[in-house]
């Protein structure tokens, strides 16, 4: 049941008239649920803002939450949801912050003397309006969480694909964990950009930490090597595990003339020999 603009106006007046008592009982309601995880002052401020938002929307003649006059209120609700989502509150806790307005209004109505049939009908209308606002909060909350997860996935991706400078003119990407197509692509772009940024003509792709490769991932690595070559840099692949070597051969993937080395150290030694840099090794510290 939609709210008529008359009823809306009435509630706008009511919200204004009883502003203090509504805000305080609304705040108390929400505070009981959040159990002190948000300071009282903070909560009071948020509630007061929401109350203003509802009041403005209703006074502006909003009958549905989708009306133009409720645009400000929608923005407020979305803001509240995304803040709460980031602070780690649940969806219910967030939505109830809105639903609690009904209780607060009911209290005011109870205290007053105008509880006739008209008021009841108007209250049902308002209740529907608040419900919709609550559901909107729920949606915004879910969306905010999704964004949060996507952001974190991206951060994880960045964390897990470092490109490090190993020597003057040599960069390395130690790959750890499962390589899927998306991550392989990120690695490829990052590596090539680092070559340009550092002016390094050599890159070592170390896949010691990669448990398995499929055709697609192997293709990505191959394409990276070819792209690097087009740009004027050489790639060496190191740390190929026995199982991966078997997969590569079984899949019929042609590594062609791409240099492969057993370990990162071997790869670096190979590069340094090519560039003519001297590597001095203390005889006592030979690696096993």
């Amino acid at each position: 049941m939609a709210l008529s603009s008359d009823e809306g106006g009435r509630f706008a007046d009511l919200l204004m008239e009883h502003e203090d008592s509504i805000v305080s009982s609304w705040t108390a309601e929400v505070a009981a649920l959040l159990r002190g995880r948000l300071s009282h002052a903070e909560l009071q401020r948020q509630t007061a803002e929401l109350q203003k938002g509802f009041q403005t929307a209703l006074a502006g003649g909003a009958q549905e939450l989708t009306d133009d006059s409720a645009a400000e209120l929608r923005a407020q609700l979305a803001e509240l949801s995304s803040t709460r989502a980031r602070q780690g509150f649940t969806a219910t806790e967030t939505a109830v912050s809105v639903f609690a307005l009904k209780e607060a209004v009911l209290k005011v109505l109870d205290a007053g003397d105008g509880t006739d049939a008209d008021t009841l009908r108007a209250y049902v209308g308002l209740s529907a309006f608040v419900d919709r606002a609550g559901l909107f909060t729920f949606d915004s909350y879910a969306r905010a969480r999704e964004e949060l997860i996507a952001d974190q996935a991206e951060q994880l991706l960045e964390l897990s694909t470092p490109v490090v400078k190993l020597w003057e003119g040599v960069v390395a990407v130690p790959l750890v964990g499962t390589l899927d197509s998306a991550r392989a692509q990120v690695v490829m772009e990052r590596l090539l950009q680092t070559l340009v940024d550092t002016g390094s003509p050599y890159a070592i792709i170390d896949i010691t930490g990669v448990p398995a490769v499929d055709t697609q991932v192997a293709q990505h690595i191959l394409k990276t090597v070819v792209a690097a070559r087009l740009m004027g840099a050489d790639c060496i692949i190191s740390g190929i595990r026995p199982q991966i070597a078997q997969t590569i051969v079984a899949l019929g993937i042609e590594f062609g003339d791409i240099a492969t080395k057993a370990s990162l150290a071997d790869a670096l030694r190979h590069v340094l020999r090519k560039t003519g840099d001297k590597v001095t090794q203390k005889p006592s510290r030979r690696e096993g």
Partner: peptide, 22 residues
């Protein structure tokens, strides 16, 4: 880099051309 990646996808390997980063 984006140009190199695209060329690889396009199937153009520019044989006979020497390249350098800068």
């Amino acid at each position: 880099p984006a140009v190199a990646i695209t060329l690889v996808e396009l199937g153009l390997s520019l044989p006979g051309i020497r390249t350098a980063l800068n």
